[in-house]
Design a protein around this nucleic acid. Sequence first.
DNA 1: CGTTCAGTTGAATCTGGTCAAGTAAAGTGG
DNA 2: CCACTTTACTTGACCAGATTCAACTGAACG
Lengths: 254, 254
Amino acid sequence: MIKHQLLDKDSVRCNTCVLGHICVPQGLNVQDTARLNDLVKERVRIPKGTLFFKAGDRLTALYSIRSGSMKLQLENESGHMQITGFAFAGEIIGLDALAENAHISNAIAMEDTEVCVIRMSDLNFLSKEIPALAYRITRLMSQEISRSHNMVLSLGAMRSEQRLAAFLINLSQRFTCLGYSGSEYVLRMSREEIGNYLGLTLETVSRLLSRFAKEGLIRIHQREVQILDFNGLQTLIQNDPVHRVEFPKLTACN
Amino acid sequence: MIKHQLLDKDSVRCNTCVLGHICVPQGLNVQDTARLNDLVKERVRIPKGTLFFKAGDRLTALYSIRSGSMKLQLENESGHMQITGFAFAGEIIGLDALAENAHISNAIAMEDTEVCVIRMSDLNFLSKEIPALAYRITRLMSQEISRSHNMVLSLGAMRSEQRLAAFLINLSQRFTCLGYSGSEYVLRMSREEIGNYLGLTLETVSRLLSRFAKEGLIRIHQREVQILDFNGLQTLIQNDPVHRVEFPKLTACN
DNA sequence: CGTTCAGTTGAATCTGGTCAAGTAAAGTGG
DNA sequence: CCACTTTACTTGACCAGATTCAACTGAACG
């Protein structure tokens, strides 16, 4: 069951949250961040596997992931799901719902996850008070467009091994930003989910991971990944026998 | 050469523009639309083939296409281009630049094109005056996210014939929204551009178009397309021998 | 009128998907 | 705690869809 938790004044709020540097407060000055206390009044615990919101649900809040991870997927009438993204701590989900005031994708917890609830009413109110906050939301949306465009680039222009290598590197970078090891991490998603996300089958993903391991690029045991040759993976991505392209350049934590 | 044209008071402005129902004014009430006079002070003519803005250029304005068409493409270090979208009359380009205040993609005119210049300074000023305008921009961004997610869905989950069929139908819908025929139109882009956009080679595109014609789904002569069997194309897309999916459902003009 | 560019079509090739069998890990119930 | 089931993953053999390479056709253009 999903547990709601109202925050009392002793709870960690945005202005003292360790995730501030990647979450909503990022880029805001100290004074503005201090005024974010009322942005999050509630947190929610979502057990692994739970459908947290689904396409069509009315938009009432944006959610920032405090711990855990979620997958976002589009569904179509015939029931096929396409995963459009994975979200980890500090990342905001729900931005694609602003157009229609209703969610477009499903959000499902890949592990026990806790999210901060940013009610639209509070967000709209505070945005008027703090122009930098409104700007921050705009930037987050624009980033999401850019992220999605890069995904199109990846799916349209990269071969399977490049997509997977890029995926591993991308995860590495995100974990690094979160303060975790970028060279050794645990995949939160199954082979099938990776494949779905990258437009491949689970068999292909499995085969490629095995191959990468055999070539000494990574070590893999179950979902534990160890990046042994970061440059090798980069090279693989840039290696372009047939007009194919490398993955989006390294980006700073944001 | 790119020609700038300052608008005098006799020029067509947003409040009287025939594209209002799909462009920025969409969804705004009559009073608000009337106040949009200062949104566009300038129009620019872009000859066919011109690189209008490129990745890295500072964001100074958003552009609404008044006539003609543009392609948007991402570039990477090794010079490969991936087309991420085509824009036609009434559509806004440049939204992905809001995150970094710099453009991420290149915009190139596919034919002689005229765009309305929406300077960021004017936009920001008017957004404060007209809350519905700020909301409209948010919606446009969110729509772009959603559009891009659908593209990911298409690239990740559809086979070549489905992608192309979906592409033709999508164009049909957009031209219909613009008041042109949806069953007979001229492709503004080459086979190579279509292929690049859909993650296929130009040969595959050509072969599929020939096949569609042979099957009586379309008629094609050069870049002139005539949709003969709309439902047939739809069926093709939905036909799902292997977990594949159909294209994003029909959408209203927005 | 020849050159160039866009598009078509065919044949060979290959990447990645499909189907199938097998293994390992993780639950589940006694 | 152990057998049993289920789920996740691996690996192999085969096949199909899409790419590549190449030759050719037809429009467009100076």
